[in-house]
Amino acid sequence: MATDTTAAVGSCVDAGGSAIGMPQLCFEWFPNQIFWLVVTLVVIFLVLSRVALPRIGAILAERQGTITNDIAAAEDLKARAAEAEKAYDKALADARAEAQRIAAETRAEIQAGLDDAIAKADAEIAAKSAESEKAIAEIRAGALESIEAVAKDTTGDIVTALGGKADADAVTAAVDSRMKG
């Protein structure tokens, strides 16, 4: 290494290997620096323009495409979900209407049956009560007749007991007139 330092001695480096002034202003080294800089820049430019930049650009474009596609797909799915929801709501409303219709129908049917039964029952009740009234009238008529007969008998008996002579026709007429009054 010692040979290095002595070898590098020139107008820019002293015998101790230290810089004389600013190494930046050492014109002896300029051609070397410029040459290798140009080589470096050309290499970097070729690598970037041929490989790196097209590749990164493609990656970014691809990602943008993927994101756009994903967003489109998401929107599509969202639309489909909204559609499905609408269909579901419609089905639900239909089912509700159907249920209401069935309920109304059933109610009407039951009402009709009930009305029928009530009417039948009413008729039966009317028939029964008519029958009963008839029986009651008969009984009442029977009772009146019996009362008349009893009254006549009793009147005849009372007349006889009082020492009179029971005239059957007079008694009957008297009782009848009383009964009417």
Partner: peptide, 30 residues
């Protein structure tokens, strides 16, 4: 010696620094 770090040196020894010489500049540019 704050400026010594900026000295251009040939990598593999040698007398002069010609435009094509492999130096520490070459190394760090590479």
């Amino acid at each position: 010696h704050p400026m010594d770090q900026f000295i251009v040196k040939p990598l593999f020894g040698g007398d002069t620094i010609a435009w094509y010489t492999l130096t520490n500049v070459t190394l760090w540019l590479a």
